[in-house]
Design a protein around this nucleic acid. Structure first.
Lengths: 192, 192
DNA sequence: GGTATTTCTTAACTTAAGTGAACGGGTTAT
DNA sequence: ATAACCCGTTCACTTAAGTTAAGAAATACC
């Protein structure tokens, strides 16, 4: 399980055994049960996540309805906005499946960054990369219809459609569950 | 004009006069005429932008139509996705107004970062912050209707609605120009 | 200054998403 | 075992966005 993390890190920097051990000594590996809430709206937090196994999601509570806006699965790193802005969180974070995560906090990062400056470099590269990827995702979302978004998701993250409840997928696609259901049957009809 | 840049930087790190001069010696300030294309679809680039004055936009060419997805105005920093991914650009970048920009490239950044390691820190902080902001923007987009998006924009970037052509605004809001026009008159009716 | 082009608006019609309600299947809890 | 709840689907109806087309207004160009 630890190798998954080190594999991920190796995409950005190379680590010595000492550095690996320093990371492991922080005890950042955690098992989290399905349904667990990791962060609530209104809370302050300085915790970042990395998904080794499983799936977590962010959702807003708007007019009494959950609006799921993001899913993080294997090999996804995620720092909530509220950690960066140091304001109360606008959204909830919750476990979609039983998951294994690394959960680190700002102090740990500060410690590691000061001990091993190359972590700073990794963080920069990673967030630049995520920023660019998210920009592309956002642009695709803007320039396509709900149906195109669904078909696009089917190509890019087919696993999500299997492992995640439909009503969560719907708001992820920016529509209502009924519309997703209808849209799916419309696509099936077209195939025949 | 240079002070705008230094003001921006001072939000993240503090600079000595030497460091400021090192930056100025790179000759990164440029005047760009309205309508100038800064980057074309399919091109490789390693240039980043910072807007001192004016407005630039990114747009995709889809089925012969321009789809504008982002605007960058005063105090906005912007590194195109293709610079990060080292792939050909998916979109165009163009000047909406006569503008004054800083245009820097990867070599300059590498040089500055090695001379002054604290620039590395600034880059990390900045991209983390932009990532978090963009996440919130994306979430707002997903969870609201075109009309809500327009009203939201009216609150957050009222200047954009004045300085940018409607048809560019429309695709920025994820709709067609005709729909934006109709939506606006619908809002006016409601007020009366 | 006048023409050409682009931009914005309006309208009629089509298509798809939102809404409210109902139903069945499945799970959970008591 | 039964009731309560959650979830996905379907339906009928409403509302809003897409499409196509036309014309007016603003802007650019020569």
């Amino acid at each position: 399980m630890q190798d998954i993390l080190f594999n991920f890190i190796s995409k950005y920097i190379s680590l010595t055994e000492d550095e690996k051990n320093a990371l492991l000594s922080l005890n950042i590996f955690h098992s989290v049960k399905r349904g667990t809430t990791l962060l609530k709206e209104g809370q302050y937090s300085n915790e970042s996540f990395f998904v080794l196994k499983g799936c977590i999601r962010t959702y807003y509570m708007i007019d009494g309805e959950e609006k799921t806006t993001a899913f993080y699965t294997e090999m996804d790193a995620f720092t909530p906005s509220c950690v960066i802005s140091k304001t109360p969180s606008d959204y909830f974070i919750s476990c979609v499946e039983d998951s294994i995560l690394t959960i680190s906090n700002a102090e740990m990062e500060a410690e590691v960054n000061s001990k091993f400056p190359k972590f700073e470099l990794m963080c920069r590269k990673l967030s630049e990369e995520l920023l660019a990827k998210q920009r592309i995702d956002f642009d695709e979302f803007k320039t396509s219809s709900p149906e195109e978004r669904y078909l696009n998701l089917l190509q890019k993250r087919p696993d999500l459609i299997q492992r995640v409840p439909q009503h969560q997928l719907a708001s992820y696609l920016g529509i209502k569950p009924q519309s997703l259901s209808r849209l799916r049957s419309r696509i099936l009809e077209k195939k025949n």
